[in-house]
Design a protein around this nucleic acid. Structure first.
Ligand SMILES: [Zn+2]
Ligand SMILES: [Zn+2]
Ligand SMILES: [Zn+2]
Ligand SMILES: [Zn+2]
Lengths: 141, 141
DNA sequence: CTATTATTGATAATCATTATCAGTTTCCTA
DNA sequence: TAGGAAACTGATAATGATTATCAATAATAG
């Protein structure tokens, strides 16, 4: 519902030059899943002296106010992407050949969630990943 | 389909004392999700001099032949559990209050997988996690 | 029995992330 | 508008999980 600007305003975080640069990087890369290191290098193109601690701090802050989504794709490091404006986060298909990450929308999970909530749980979020071979990698296996 | 013994036999890995101890630990803790460190301590009760490198190596080997399942629950470390004998891995519900992990079976995902396969992907595995408050934690929030 | 190979445990190295801290910037208000 | 509190920054050190190295040991095959 809330736009990024509203979320930032509500958060009471100062929009410093560094934070704006990092947010710009994330917006320039909508749909991609960037590691903190990748964000650091891209942000340094806009602001050469930005430090890595600032990148980590900012990414975590932006994730905490749901401007970014922080996920671990089983490679031992977190990746960040802009949140969907809609309610639910999309699902990820990770190619075991080339490593590309594609996305899909679907609301089948709400059925599962209702099942779980009927047992007394309060569901906050979910995370669904498919490990697969993409059409090209499948062909070249 | 294959039993653990068959998988081990097919793998051509030697069943050393250390590996047997680690496998025993995993079988003693069926349904639990253990970190490498937890496995190390439990294995040392059976074999006091076992080293941590051996634990990591063995857990990875057992995961590679699908005797164990290796997952990251977003806490920055891997956890291991015995694989289900059936085809599909169960789903996980992670409590944001107490950290307990419970499991659920469901085959709704096969519908989604068919949808993805119809686009040319070959699906190997999936991983579905729900982040929630369990009934007790929800009550005590 | 001996040579080859796999396995082990101690240790060091690596890698992503987090903590520390002194210096800087921003904000608030008197 | 000055001055002090609070937030923010970047360099660096520390942490914690995992992996690599390597010499010693154990299993295996001929
Ligand atoms: Zn691919
Ligand atoms: Zn995504
Ligand atoms: Zn709980
Ligand atoms: Zn499980």
């Amino acid at each position: 519902m809330n736009s990024i600007k509203e979320k930032l305003k509500d958060s009471n975080y100062r929009i410093t030059g560094q934070r704006a640069a990092i947010l710009e990087v994330m917006m320039d890369n909508r749909g991609k899943h960037l590691s903190a290191e990748e964000v650091l290098y891209k942000a340094r193109e806009k602001m050469p002296n930005i430090g890595m601690a600032t990148v980590y701090r900012t990414l975590d802050k932006l994730a905490s106010i749901e401007v970014l989504y922080k996920t671990m794709f089983d490679e031992g490091r977190y990746r960040y992407e802009l949140c969907d404006e809609g309610m639910h986060q999309h699902h990820h298909i990770i190619c075991l050949g080339c490593g590309n990450i594609t996305e899909m929308e679907d609301d089948l999970l709400t059925i599962l969630e209702q099942k779980i909530e009927s047992k007394g749980y309060e569901i906050i979020d979910h995370d669904l990943k498919f490990y697969a071979y993409c059409p090209e990698c499948r062909y070249n296996k």
